[in-house]
């Protein structure tokens, strides 16, 4: 179990527990107190970019400075997102993402903030949108139209599942995002390095947890067609030329399941991470 399952799982995988998607719709205004502090989360429009920039700058100044910047970044994420240890996301395979769509409400298609920042891409029509906002907070998106460029497009549960399957076919990694303590507020579909969360994880070691599964190849079924090889975003999957079979480094595998859904011979399967002794602590 990952630490979020222990804290918020109630006996199941935490992102399959409906409690972690529920939120109230309204908050009555507080009676104004003099000297009250500003609400968290509305601070700096360049907040995340500055966080990443501070870490890169620290690489220039030595290990102590870098570790200091890392700690600052983790604490910052915990403070603004309600996460623990700087982990505000987790990779999920397609089948779990589809189950997430069943237990959260409402489901709204939105534009990806990372691809906008990294590549200047605007997803102004729903056909191109690759992110999904979950939970009643999405009903208030109009407060920040600049963040939700292109608007929010509401989907039914079945439409959401089809949308997830389409993005899976294209080769996007599915992941969840936390937006508050014990609150899962989004399903992202990303790839390295356009996705800031994956980049933070692979380059600086926080933000995105590995998933609850690990992919394994059945050599008897694999015919070495190589279709799966181009789908791995984590450098875990390559062609073993000597054997003429696909080969997965399970230490590197994030359990996104993209190789599994692409395999025409069903030679790749997802195993539960906690059932593999040497991997159950690798998140």
């Amino acid at each position: 179990m990952c630490h979020y399952c222990e804290m918020w799982g109630d006996g199941t995988i935490w992102y399959l527990n409906p409690r972690n998607y529920a939120r109230h719709m309204y908050t009555l205004p507080k009676e104004a107190k003099p000297g009250a502090t500003k609400a968290v989360g509305e601070a700096d429009p360049a907040g995340y970019i500055n966080l990443e920039r501070a870490m890169v700058d620290a690489l220039e100044r030595g290990p102590e400075e870098y570790e200091k910047a890392m700690k600052f970044a983790r604490d910052m994420v915990d403070m603004t997102q309600g996460s623990v240890g700087g982990w505000m996301g987790q990779v999920v395979p397609l089948r779990d993402a589809e189950r997430m769509a069943e237990i959260s409400n409402p489901l709204g298609l939105i534009a990806c903030i990372c691809r906008k920042a990294m590549l200047g891409i605007e997803e102004r029509c729903p056909e191109n949108m690759t992110c999904m906002g979950l939970g009643v907070g999405m009903l208030k998106w109009e407060r920040w139209p600049e963040r939700y460029k292109g608007g929010v497009h509401w989907l039914t549960i079945e439409e959401t599942k089809q949308w997830l399957r389409d993005l899976d076919t294209k080769g996007f990694v599915h992941s969840l995002m936390m937006f508050g303590p014990r609150f899962i507020g989004g399903i992202c579909n990303c790839d390295y390095p356009a996705c800031d969360a994956l980049t933070m994880r692979l380059d600086h070691g926080f933000n995105m947890l590995k998933g609850h599964h690990v992919a394994m190849v059945d050599y008897d079924l694999c015919n070495g067609c190589g279709i799966c090889v181009q789908r791995c975003q984590f450098g875990a999957l390559k062609m073993n030329v000597t054997l003429d079979k696909a080969n997965i480094d399970q230490m590197r595998c994030f359990g996104c399941g993209l190789c599994e859904t692409a395999c025409p011979r069903k030679a790749i399967s997802l195993k539960e991470r906690i059932k593999i002794p040497s991997l159950q602590e690798v998140w």
């Binding site: 529920a22 109230h24 719709m25 309204y26 009555l28 237990i103 959260s104 409400n105 409402p106 009643v136």
Partner: peptide
């Protein structure tokens, strides 16, 4: 969700708390 809205109004209008904690809200 529509149901949730009215239940929230009912309690916020008569109780003394500022939010009504929602434990689960799904289909």
């Amino acid at each position: 969700l529509v149901l949730q809205r009215f239940i929230e109004i009912a309690y916020l209008g008569t109780q003394q708390f500022r939010i009504l904690p929602i434990v689960e809200n799904w289909a």
